[in-house]
Protein backbone atom coordinates (compact mmCIF):
# COMPACT_ATOMS: atom_id res chain seq x y z
CA UNK A 1 0.00 0.00 0.00
CA UNK A 2 1.25 3.47 -0.87
CA UNK A 3 2.42 5.54 2.09
CA UNK A 4 0.86 8.92 2.93
CA UNK A 5 4.05 10.79 2.00
CA UNK A 6 4.21 8.95 -1.34
CA UNK A 7 0.62 9.98 -2.06
CA UNK A 8 1.34 13.56 -1.04
CA UNK A 9 4.34 13.83 -3.38
CA UNK A 10 2.12 12.21 -6.02
CA UNK A 11 -0.41 15.01 -5.54
CA UNK A 12 2.34 17.62 -6.08
CA UNK A 13 3.48 15.74 -9.18
CA UNK A 14 -0.10 15.74 -10.52
CA UNK A 15 -0.46 19.49 -9.93
CA UNK A 16 2.81 20.19 -11.75
CA UNK A 17 1.78 17.95 -14.64
CA UNK A 18 -1.66 19.53 -14.95
CA UNK A 19 -0.04 22.97 -15.07
CA UNK A 20 2.92 22.00 -17.25
CA UNK A 21 1.86 24.11 -20.26
CA UNK A 22 0.76 27.01 -18.07
CA UNK A 23 4.14 27.16 -16.30
CA UNK A 24 6.02 26.87 -19.58
CA UNK A 25 3.90 29.67 -21.11
CA UNK A 26 4.67 31.93 -18.13
CA UNK A 27 8.35 31.13 -18.59
CA UNK A 28 8.13 31.85 -22.34
CA UNK A 29 7.14 35.43 -21.53
CA UNK A 30 10.11 36.24 -19.30
CA UNK A 31 12.49 33.29 -19.46
CA UNK A 32 13.55 30.35 -21.56
CA UNK A 33 10.20 28.54 -21.88
CA UNK A 34 11.15 25.39 -20.04
CA UNK A 35 9.89 25.64 -16.44
CA UNK A 36 6.78 23.46 -16.84
CA UNK A 37 8.47 20.89 -19.06
CA UNK A 38 11.47 20.73 -16.72
CA UNK A 39 9.43 20.40 -13.53
CA UNK A 40 7.15 17.75 -15.08
CA UNK A 41 10.15 15.73 -16.23
CA UNK A 42 11.65 16.04 -12.73
CA UNK A 43 8.51 14.86 -10.95
CA UNK A 44 7.97 11.95 -13.37
CA UNK A 45 11.47 10.79 -12.39
CA UNK A 46 10.64 11.37 -8.68
CA UNK A 47 7.55 9.15 -8.86
CA UNK A 48 9.69 6.36 -10.33
CA UNK A 49 12.50 6.87 -7.80
CA UNK A 50 10.60 6.83 -4.49
CA UNK A 51 9.38 3.50 -3.13
CA UNK A 52 5.57 3.52 -2.80
CA UNK A 53 5.56 1.94 0.64
CA UNK A 54 8.30 4.10 2.22
CA UNK A 55 6.81 5.78 5.29
CA UNK A 56 9.90 7.68 6.48
CA UNK A 57 9.16 11.25 5.38
CA UNK A 58 12.82 12.23 5.61
CA UNK A 59 13.89 9.41 3.30
CA UNK A 60 11.20 10.23 0.73
CA UNK A 61 11.97 13.98 0.72
CA UNK A 62 15.71 13.35 0.40
CA UNK A 63 15.14 11.06 -2.58
CA UNK A 64 12.73 13.62 -4.07
CA UNK A 65 15.33 16.38 -3.73
CA UNK A 66 18.20 14.33 -5.17
CA UNK A 67 16.08 13.32 -8.15
CA UNK A 68 14.93 16.89 -8.84
CA UNK A 69 18.45 18.31 -8.84
CA UNK A 70 19.50 15.66 -11.33
CA UNK A 71 16.49 15.45 -13.65
CA UNK A 72 14.87 18.91 -13.86
CA UNK A 73 17.69 20.41 -15.93
CA UNK A 74 17.18 24.11 -15.17
CA UNK A 75 17.97 26.24 -12.13
CA UNK A 76 14.70 25.14 -10.53
CA UNK A 77 16.27 21.66 -10.17
CA UNK A 78 18.95 22.65 -7.65
CA UNK A 79 16.57 25.14 -6.02
CA UNK A 80 13.65 22.75 -5.43
CA UNK A 81 16.12 19.89 -4.90
CA UNK A 82 17.82 21.77 -2.07
CA UNK A 83 14.44 22.78 -0.62
CA UNK A 84 13.17 19.17 -0.41
CA UNK A 85 16.47 17.89 0.97
CA UNK A 86 16.69 20.58 3.66
CA UNK A 87 13.06 19.97 4.68
CA UNK A 88 13.74 16.22 4.67
CA UNK A 89 16.61 16.53 7.14
CA UNK A 90 14.11 17.67 9.78
CA UNK A 91 11.78 14.76 9.07
CA UNK A 92 14.31 11.93 9.30
CA UNK A 93 12.69 8.93 10.99
CA UNK A 94 9.25 10.55 11.11
CA UNK A 95 6.12 9.16 9.49
CA UNK A 96 3.81 11.89 10.80
CA UNK A 97 4.17 15.65 11.14
CA UNK A 98 2.53 18.14 13.48
CA UNK A 99 1.95 21.82 12.72
CA UNK A 100 5.28 22.87 14.26
CA UNK A 101 7.21 20.21 12.30
CA UNK A 102 5.73 21.38 9.02
CA UNK A 103 6.52 25.03 9.80
CA UNK A 104 10.13 24.21 10.64
CA UNK A 105 10.45 22.22 7.41
CA UNK A 106 8.97 25.03 5.32
CA UNK A 107 11.46 27.41 6.93
CA UNK A 108 14.37 25.05 6.22
CA UNK A 109 13.24 24.74 2.59
CA UNK A 110 13.11 28.53 2.21
CA UNK A 111 16.56 28.96 3.77
CA UNK A 112 17.91 26.31 1.39
CA UNK A 113 16.47 28.15 -1.63
CA UNK A 114 17.89 31.47 -0.40
CA UNK A 115 21.35 29.99 0.07
CA UNK A 116 21.36 28.09 -3.22
CA UNK A 117 19.94 30.95 -5.29
CA UNK A 118 21.70 33.76 -3.41
CA UNK A 119 18.31 35.47 -3.52
CA UNK A 120 16.22 37.54 -1.15
CA UNK A 121 12.55 38.52 -1.09
CA UNK A 122 11.51 41.09 -3.71
CA UNK A 123 13.56 39.77 -6.64
CA UNK A 124 10.61 38.16 -8.48
CA UNK A 125 11.32 34.58 -7.48
CA UNK A 126 9.61 31.69 -5.70
CA UNK A 127 10.65 33.37 -2.43
CA UNK A 128 8.02 36.08 -3.05
CA UNK A 129 5.34 33.41 -2.64
CA UNK A 130 7.04 31.19 -0.05
CA UNK A 131 8.20 33.77 2.50
CA UNK A 132 4.78 35.47 2.96
CA UNK A 133 3.24 31.97 3.06
CA UNK A 134 5.61 30.91 5.83
CA UNK A 135 5.02 34.10 7.82
CA UNK A 136 1.24 33.62 7.61
CA UNK A 137 1.60 29.95 8.50
CA UNK A 138 3.65 30.54 11.66
CA UNK A 139 1.37 33.40 12.77
CA UNK A 140 -1.65 31.06 12.57
CA UNK A 141 0.15 28.23 14.36
CA UNK A 142 1.18 30.64 17.14
CA UNK A 143 -2.50 31.52 17.54
CA UNK A 144 -3.18 27.81 18.01
CA UNK A 145 -4.38 26.89 14.52
CA UNK A 146 -3.95 23.35 13.23
CA UNK A 147 -1.77 22.45 10.23
CA UNK A 148 -4.58 22.51 7.66
CA UNK A 149 -6.05 25.90 8.60
CA UNK A 150 -2.58 27.44 8.90
CA UNK A 151 -1.70 26.04 5.47
CA UNK A 152 -4.94 27.46 4.02
CA UNK A 153 -3.83 30.93 5.15
CA UNK A 154 -0.33 30.25 3.77
CA UNK A 155 -1.78 29.39 0.35
CA UNK A 156 -3.80 32.63 0.30
CA UNK A 157 -0.65 34.63 1.00
CA UNK A 158 1.34 32.67 -1.58
CA UNK A 159 -1.26 33.58 -4.22
CA UNK A 160 -0.99 37.23 -3.19
CA UNK A 161 2.78 36.79 -3.54
CA UNK A 162 2.29 35.67 -7.17
CA UNK A 163 0.27 38.84 -7.82
CA UNK A 164 3.05 40.89 -6.20
CA UNK A 165 5.63 39.40 -8.60
CA UNK A 166 3.71 41.03 -11.48
CA UNK A 167 4.49 44.47 -10.06
CA UNK A 168 8.28 44.14 -9.77
CA UNK A 169 11.21 43.67 -12.10
CA UNK A 170 13.31 40.53 -11.96
CA UNK A 171 16.85 40.77 -10.63
CA UNK A 172 17.61 37.04 -10.53
CA UNK A 173 17.67 34.37 -13.22
CA UNK A 174 17.03 34.64 -16.96
CA UNK A 175 14.21 37.15 -16.47
CA UNK A 176 16.73 39.64 -15.05
CA UNK A 177 18.18 40.03 -18.57
CA UNK A 178 14.88 41.67 -19.53
CA UNK A 179 14.97 44.46 -16.92
CA UNK A 180 11.75 46.49 -16.87
CA UNK A 181 10.22 44.27 -19.58
CA UNK A 182 9.73 41.63 -16.86
CA UNK A 183 7.20 43.90 -15.09
CA UNK A 184 3.58 42.86 -15.67
CA UNK A 185 4.37 39.15 -15.82
CA UNK A 186 3.97 36.74 -12.93
CA UNK A 187 6.98 34.70 -11.93
CA UNK A 188 6.85 31.02 -12.99
CA UNK A 189 8.81 29.92 -9.90
CA UNK A 190 6.47 31.73 -7.50
CA UNK A 191 3.63 30.02 -9.38
CA UNK A 192 5.04 26.49 -9.11
CA UNK A 193 5.89 27.08 -5.43
CA UNK A 194 2.26 28.09 -4.78
CA UNK A 195 0.96 25.07 -6.72
CA UNK A 196 3.14 22.91 -4.46
CA UNK A 197 1.67 24.33 -1.24
CA UNK A 198 -1.88 24.07 -2.66
CA UNK A 199 -1.30 20.45 -3.64
CA UNK A 200 -0.14 19.60 -0.11
CA UNK A 201 -3.24 21.34 1.28
CA UNK A 202 -5.51 19.50 -1.17
CA UNK A 203 -3.98 16.20 -0.15
CA UNK A 204 -4.33 16.88 3.59
CA UNK A 205 -7.96 17.95 3.20
CA UNK A 206 -8.55 14.66 1.39
Amino acid sequence: MASRIYECIGKISEAINENKDFLTDLDREIGDADHGVNMARGFSAVMEAIPQDETDIGTVLKKTGMTLLSKVGGASGPLYGTAYMEAGKLAAGKSELNAEDFGAMLNAAIEGIQKRGKAVRGEKTMLDALIPAYEAYTAKVTEGADLISALEEACTKAKEGIEFTKTIRATKGRASYLGDRSIGHQDPGATSATLTLEAILDYLKG
Partner: peptide
Amino acid sequence: GLEDGSIGTDAVR
Protein backbone atom coordinates in the same frame (compact mmCIF):
# COMPACT_ATOMS: atom_id res chain seq x y z
CA GLY B 1 23.15 18.15 -20.96
CA LEU B 2 20.96 15.64 -19.15
CA GLU B 3 21.36 11.87 -19.02
CA ASP B 4 18.70 11.42 -21.75
CA GLY B 5 20.49 13.86 -24.07
CA SER B 6 18.13 16.80 -23.60
CA ILE B 7 19.24 20.35 -22.87
CA GLY B 8 19.86 21.09 -19.20
CA THR B 9 22.32 20.68 -16.35
CA ASP B 10 22.48 17.80 -13.86
CA ALA B 11 24.21 18.38 -10.52
CA VAL B 12 24.73 14.65 -9.95
CA ARG B 13 26.47 14.15 -13.33
